[in-house]
């Protein structure tokens, strides 16, 4: 079987387990989701910012416009709804030109959903290009930040933003699937979503049945990967042992 066939079978298994879990979830036999402290901390951070009359800052970094950006939009939508509900000032800083319009729409819709469309301000949506890091550091200096959310595809700027953010005294919640930046975020933030957790955030926060189905598929995919790795390792180990014994026997 070639690589593409294996990948296709994997995708089909993935889609089927999604459908099964969605069906099961819609008939009422709900599937529990484990607690993700980082996501629970979002409410805590916004609550604290509200109590202190401080700003909630949401940073979408300068990395790729990829699945992580979409995951960040989910979290942004939730954060915006909460800030709209509690009348907390929200600032969204973004370094990706592609993401700017989407982020603006996500926040606008969140304010609309909470009946606070008049509170939405275009000024709270900031696009910073090449000077992104410097721009965010400037905001840390000028704005009283109570909650700092750092989500998306981070690169070198992760530690600069998280460590400087730590100095503001804000509760910092971050998340990335960029493994190279995870150690920095873990070291400098209060809570960090690691790898796959960021993709599950939208589902976790919305508790939407259909989305939970894909989370189950994610788990099934993980078990399939583990099984494939174990079987693959055993196969190649035994094959090399068998080949070695044949070579010795042949002599």
């Amino acid at each position: 079987m070639d690589n593409k066939t294996i990948a296709f079978c994997f995708l089909v298994a993935f889609a089927l387990s999604s459908l099964y879990a969605m069906r099961r979830n819609s008939t009422g036999s709900g599937i529990p989701i484990r607690r993700v402290p980082g996501l629970d901390a979002i409410d805590e951070a916004i609550g604290r910012a509200t109590e202190m009359g401080r700003t909630s800052l949401f940073v979408i970094p300068a990395g790729a416009f990829d699945a992580q950006a979409f995951a960040a939009f989910d979290i942004l939508g939730y954060v915006a709804r909460q800030t709209a509900k509690y009348d907390t000032k929200l600032l969204v800083v973004n370094a990706l030109p592609e993401a700017h319009t989407i982020a603006t729409e996500v926040v606008r819709q969140a304010y609309l959903a909470e009946g606070k469309e008049k509170s939405f301000s275009q000024d709270s949506m900031r696009f910073l290009s090449g000077g992104f890091t410097a721009g965010v550091l400037g905001i840390y200096e000028r704005e009283p930040i109570g909650a700092n959310f750092l989500f998306g595809s981070f690169f070198f700027e992760s530690l600069t933003l998280a460590e400087a953010g730590q100095k503001t005294g804000a509760i910092q919640v971050s998340g990335t699937a960029n493994t190279h930046q995870l150690p920095f975020l873990v070291a400098a933030c209060d809570y960090t979503l690691i790898g796959e957790e960021i993709y599950a955030a939208g589902t976790y926060l919305s508790r939407n049945g259909a989305q939970i189905g894909s989370l189950v598929a994610q788990e099934v995919g993980k078990y399939l990967s583990i099984a494939a790795m174990i079987l693959g390792s055993l196969y190649f180990t035994f094959r090399s042992v068998f080949q070695a014994s044949q070579t010795i026997g042949g002599r």
Binding site: A67, A177, G195, E197, Y199, S214, A217, Q218, K222
Partner: peptide, 14 residues
């Protein structure tokens, strides 16, 4: 972490 992340990305893309 990379395998978990990739599965998450596939799930989100789907």
């Amino acid at each position: 972490i990379a395998i978990g992340g990739a599965l998450g990305a596939i799930a989100l893309s789907l």
